[in-house]
Amino acid sequence: MTSSDLVDSVRRAVGAVTDPELRRPLAELDMVRDIAVDDGAARVAIVLTIIGCPAATRIESDVRQAAASVPGVRSVDVAVGVMTPDERRALTDRLRGGRAARAMPFGPDSLTRVIAVTSGKGGVGKSTVTANLAVALARRGITVGLIDADVHGYSIPALMGLTRGGDVPTPTRIDDLMLPPVAHDVKVISIGMFLRRAGEAPTGAVAWRGPMLHRTIQQFLTDVYFGDLDVLLLDMPPGTGDIAISVGQLLPNADVLVVTTPQSAASDVAVRSGLVARQTGQRIIGVVENMAAMTLPDGTPLELFGSGGGSEVAAALSTDDEPVEVLASIPLSATLREGGDAGEPVVLAHPDDPAAVAIDRLAGALAATRRGLAGRSLPFTPR
């Protein structure tokens, strides 16, 4: 192999290394600079997006291993620099795919399926269902993003295991883009990532009214770089308040999954959240009944919260043009609750648990019904 061929081989190997935050190869991100090989000693220069990039150590290690794997390379020296402001601007323009800054990428023409998970009241396990559903979808090879839209009662970072050990990851900023932390192959954003720092206690409750809440959700949708997603889940706050209205305005094309528990006190209120979603033009795709009957060791069913609430919600929300079904009935499960407290989604930690099985089936049902292309423009021009 000639020296030129060896340099090309090293460049290909290094260029194939994936940036762990942007989830794209370094060559595609224009992060590879000069490469030289002299008598088996490779010198590789790369640039990172920002000073203090949290993925710097991993990227350097991956680059070193990639270069060392090329036959004929005996040693590797990696020089790490930082992009210039112009290079960073060019990168963010490329990541946006030609969209203007702060343009919303999840509009009616988007190929991403947006699913808002709602409930009428708190305490029905909506966030736990959403977090586990996101992980179950990702396990099926689906690219998933998760927005914690419950600004006042955020819990997604803890449920996804992002707060274990007191370390709360904050999104990396590249100019006006934010790169969301990744947990269990799900890209996650939450206001909780901005209110806490590593090793510190929470700074307090979020006491915001309508305009601030609207702007927060808008920024999550426009300024966070999720990349190409198959599914974007929104963990909605309970009820029909400001955020429900804002999401309806910003994402009228979203599908809605209504979560309830079996008792009438929850199911009656859950219907209201579905009705408000439908008023904004969103489509109700189904009902999830959480905390349903569990089976005791002797085989006896325990209906701690009654029964029938999910079917009642589905019937109340069904119309002649838009029938609504119960897509999942998730049994009451101590394992599901323990996994939430520990930041270990039950679909990963205990996939055989009855609750995990029910959530995985829900993921399968949603994965089988992708967004259709009818009536939407496609991102190419025929020649």
Rank of each mutant, 00 (worst) to 15 (best):
E21Q: 09
L22M: 10
L22T: 03
R24I: 00
R24M: 09
R24D: 00
P25L: 03
P25M: 08
L26S: 05
L26Y: 06
A27Y: 01
M31R: 08
V32C: 08
R33P: 01
V37C: 07
V37K: 08
V37G: 04
V37I: 13
G40D: 06
G40S: 10
G40F: 10
A41E: 11
A41S: 14
A41C: 09
R43L: 12
I46N: 04
I46C: 02
V47L: 00
L48N: 09
G52E: 07
C53L: 03
P54Q: 05
A56N: 08
R58V: 11
I59Q: 08
E60I: 12
S61I: 02
S61R: 14
V63Y: 14
R64A: 14
R64Q: 08
R64C: 12
R64K: 13
A67Q: 09
A67H: 12
A67C: 12
A68W: 05
S69K: 09
G72V: 11
R74Q: 13
R74I: 01
S75Q: 09
V76E: 09
V76K: 14
D77V: 13
D77C: 00
V78Y: 06
V78T: 13
A79C: 01
G81K: 03
G81A: 08
V82L: 08
M83Q: 15
M83T: 03
T84E: 13
E87P: 03
E87V: 01
R89F: 07
R89A: 10
A90T: 12
L91S: 04
L91H: 11
T92I: 15
T92S: 03
L95P: 06
L95Y: 11
R96A: 07
A100R: 14
A101P: 14
M104D: 15
M104T: 06
F106R: 11
F106K: 11
F106S: 12
G107E: 13
P108N: 00
P108M: 03
R113M: 02
I115F: 13
A116H: 01
T118N: 02
T118R: 02
S119F: 14
G120Q: 04
K121L: 11
K121Q: 06
G122L: 06
G122D: 11
G125T: 05
S127K: 02
V129E: 04
T130Y: 05
L133V: 00
A134N: 10
V135F: 10
V135Y: 12
A136T: 10
L137C: 02
L137G: 02
A138Q: 09
A138E: 10
R139T: 02
R140C: 02
R140Y: 01
G141R: 05
